[in-house]
Amino acid sequence: MAAEMEPLLIARGLAKAFGSGTARVEIFRNVDLDLRAGDFTAIVGPSGCGKSTLLHLLAGLDQADGGEVFLQGQSWTALSAEKRALLRGEAIGFVFQLHHLLPELTAEENVALPLLLAGSGERAAREKAREVLARVGLAARAAALPRTLSGGERQRVAIGRAVVRRPRILLCDEPTGSLDAAHATEVFELLQEVARERAGAALVVTHDPAWANRCATIKTLTAEGLAVVS
């Protein structure tokens, strides 16, 4: 039981700055965060406050200027690039503001991609991808290329791709930012459902308080760190 309550993701004293010398701009510092199984946390803040940068640091995609991130007890900085990639693929699902689907691949192939990168056989990967597409309501669009899908459908495929390996953490960077209100609601609700079903915890970055209010916890990112709003 104690192990269950251990945070999946821990950030301690994270700091990030861009530029050097007189052009150096400090984005944030002293960011502490614990993400436990079952958490559905929103991070809000104005555009340019470093929300996406924070997500990149948490996912081990960028190097912090200070502090450390532990994913399932392992520090990103202690791992080689190869091991970081393996751990990221296994433990983290990532949803971008723009879907970032590969344009030459069908919806099914895009969803199957993380499984193929992890070494699954093509047949099994495609089968699992079809299951996930059915879950996100796109069973009939499995063979469609991204350019033939609507914005909402693309984002649903992207969500399917993020959860197909059943990661314990879902990191979402403005997942509804490029959608109209109707599609945004639909996608956000789907995100909440699949995060609950397939991932242990979710962290959603948004600049829109309306979406943040739908999350269990809201934290705001400032230059001095994260502050709990509710």
Binding site: L61, E82, A85, R88, G89, H100, L113
Partner: peptide, 16 residues
């Protein structure tokens, strides 16, 4: 390069 970055996010190692 965007696609390469997405592959990295999805768990592809630099070697892959």
């Amino acid at each position: 390069s965007q696609d390469a970055a997405v592959l990295s996010v999805l768990g592809a190692s630099p070697r892959t």
